[in-house]
Design a protein around this nucleic acid. Structure first.
Length: 606
RNA sequence: GGGGGUGUAGUUCAGUUGGUUAGAAUGCUGGCCUGUCACGCCGGAGGUCGCGGGUUCGAGCCCCGUCGCUCCCGCCA
């Protein structure tokens, strides 16, 4: 078609020269005589001009142009006069005097304006092909592309081989619900779409590939959130003959180059590290936003004999790790200025996470009315008050929020509250990207409903060597075993997670046993892995980055839907293609399937 | 599975205590306009008030149900 330049490339250097441009009509300004058209392609805009002095044919055609018509123009680049320059446009110093216009395609009026920032996602997704023309989406997907190239480059440079693994695989227990694919050839049997390439990448290590990576789609049939899609992209990598530190260092290099190359940002090195225990203790969450200048303080010991019965009772509760009673304080600098309504709102907020209340103390100056202002302070002795001040470092003008419940509830409630208040009161360091590693996650977690242990990471995660001995100890301490698992956290969001894997078959069998998966079931469902481990499995470990979330944070967008070309709605539907959909009876028959749903008409008739 | 929000013109929204002909902006469209760049000026068209039922003399508004979208809890690493 003979295009010579992209729109945004038409600059002063080309003045006097001829250019052929292709693109969309972003806007037409018809003055009756001269007609201006902003021509757009993915690089930007350039103004092209149709003068009546030009061939009348062109001018007539230019009058018929509408938004989003697809055109090709040929013309001469001219410098604009002083008064007609547009400093808002990168190409604003020049324009193109068109002498040839070809209308390549017409366009119907758009369902929404491309420059309208407030269009609902419903319309955007139904017309995603138009939505993708908007500058934001063009930028987002460009950044995503550059990120992918950067990651591939670094991994290639670091000796990683990109290897694909099956999308049609077998269903495994543990973890999320699988998306199932019925087999036509094997009546009544199903493939599952992978939740991750976990087992295959371990097999690749056993297969001797030493360093593997893959940028791949993963599928989980669970309910969605702003940062969750039914299919999402992982940067998956695995390395042989490594320990946690090796993986973390590699990932730091990977991420640092990514941010340098794509964002022009030099990250602080090395990334901060917290153990899971520290993270929970200081921040209440396993993915802390360490930019927020507040920490939780455990005051359980101080409150053990307090006159405030609610606290005293909680402080004396025992239970499984995380389930014992605890009292923690979140000190809010300047929080004494919070209004009653704001405090009520925060109380309602923590209730979401199971907190039954949110006691508080406003630390007013002694000469102010009442000094400390609080519904509960009357129960505290002077010693307890003094101890609280010591423990929290509270000063006049602060507010203390108390969480008193099972430790698990307190951590979650105050942890989330910390983040919320941090944002509300802008107590966040302005550092845009703050990475931190969280290490030494617990290996197992007690599942109260199923009355068994569940793997915190996944069943192939290696325990810490020094805790391994406890695995054969009494059941009561199994909770305390830590794993060689690590998460990469960015600004309070988990953007990656991984672990050193179990490479010893005996240990793997023991692990499955702890998860209440008997030898027969283990053999049936993980037999291929257990067998592979028998044949010289190297020590190995790896990590997976959640690419969608990472890109979203890099771009500062709230929803990962904005960094995915064709995302799905919260009910996992596609508004563009109307997937999922009913299928022909014949298709079902071939798959040996019958739905238990009655057709709508029937149920209406009843 | 549960809780919250939302649905009115192509789009973004307003719509009073339930009251007669449902508005605004923008877009679209016809005309005018030779230097605009959010061009301007004059005119016009455009509505299943998500859907179904109910209350009422009367429903965009109240009630019940249902569907879509969205945020959160559970779930999910």
């Amino acid at each position: 078609m003979n295009r010579t330049h992209y729109c945004n490339d038409v600059r002063e250097e080309l003045v006097g020269g001829r250019v052929n441009l292709c693109g969309w009509v972003n806007r037409r300004r018809d003055h009756g005589g001269v007609i201006f058209v902003d021509l757009r392609d993915r690089t930007g805009l350039v103004q092209v001009v149709f003068s009546p002095e030009q061939q009348q044919q062109n001018h007539e055609a230019a009058r018929s142009l509408r938004n989003e018509y697809v055109i090709m123009v040929s013309g001469v680049v001219v410098r604009r006069t002083e008064e007609t320059r547009n400093p808002k446009l990168p190409t604003g110093l020049i324009e193109v005097q068109v002498d040839l216009l070809r209308i390549l395609n017409a366009a119907a009026p758009l369902p929404f304006q491309l420059d309208d920032e407030d269009v609902g996602e419903g319309v955007r997704f139904a017309y995603r092909f138009l939505d993708l023309r908007r500058v934001d989406m063009q930028r987002n997907l460009l950044v995503r592309h550059r990120a992918l190239q950067s990651l591939r480059r670094t991994l290639d440079d670091s000796g990683f081989l990109e290897i694909e693994t099956p999308m049609l695989t077998r269903s495994t227990p543990e973890g999320a619900r699988d998306y199932l694919v019925p087999s036509r050839v094997h009546p009544g049997q199903f493939y599952a779409l992978p939740q991750s390439p976990q087992l295959f990448k371990q097999l690749l290590m056993i297969g001797g590939f030493d360093r593997y990576f893959q940028i791949t789609r993963c599928f989980r049939d669970e309910d969605l959130r702003a940062d969750r899609q039914p299919e999402f992209t992982q940067v998956d990598l695995e390395m042989s003959f490594v320990e946690s530190d090796d993986v973390m260092q590699l990932v730091e290099k990977l991420v640092s180059r990514l941010f340098a190359e794509v964002m022009g940002v030099e990250l602080v090195h090395p990334f901060g590290r917290l153990t899971y225990a520290e993270a929970m203790d200081r921040y209440g969450l396993d993915a802390p936003d360490v930019r927020i200048r507040m920490e939780l303080v455990d005051v359980t010991a101080i409150m053990r004999d307090t006159g405030f019965k609610v606290f005293a009772q909680v402080a004396k509760q025992a239970g499984r790790p995380g389930r014992q009673g605890a009292i923690k304080v979140l000190r809010v600098p300047g929080g004494a200025a919070l209004t009653r309504k704001e405090i009520d709102d925060y109380t309602a907020f923590v209730a979401i996470y199971g907190a039954k209340g949110l006691a508080y103390i406003k630390i007013n100056a002694p000469w102010q009315e009442g000094g400390w202002q609080s519904p509960i302070v009357k129960f505290f002795s002077d010693e307890e008050k003094e101890a609280l001040i010591q423990a929290t470092g509270a000063v006049v003008g602060d507010l203390l929020f108390f969480g008193a419940d099972q430790l698990k509830v307190v951590n979650e409630a105050l942890g989330r509250l910390r983040v919320k208040i941090g944002r509300d009161l802008n107590l966040i360091d302005d550092k845009p990207f703050s990475f931190v590693w969280v290490t030494e996650f617990p290996l197992l977690d007690w599942d109260e409903e199923a009355k068994r242990f569940a793997a915190v990471h996944h069943p192939f995660t290696a325990p810490m060597i020094e805790d391994f001995i406890r695995l054969d100890g009494e059941a009561g301490v199994v909770d305390l075993v830590r794993s060689q698992a690590y998460d990469l956290v960015l600004n309070g969001s988990e953007v990656g997670g991984g672990s050193i894997r179990i490479h010893d078959p005996a240990m793997q069998r023991r692990m499955l046993e702890l998860l209440n998966i008997g030898p027969a079931e283990a053999e049936e469902k993980f037999g291929f892995l257990l067998k592979a481990l028998e044949f010289g499995a190297p020590p190995h470990g790896g990590l997976a980055l959640g690419l969608d979330r990472l890109i979203a944070i890099m771009l500062g967008v709230d929803s990962i839907r904005d960094v995915i070309a064709f995302p799905k709605t919260q009910k996992a539907g596609c508004l563009l293609t109307q997937a999922p959909s009913a299928v022909d009876a014949l298709q079902l028959r071939e798959l040996h399937l019958r739905t238990t749903l009655r057709p709508r008409e029937e149920s209406v008739k009843e």
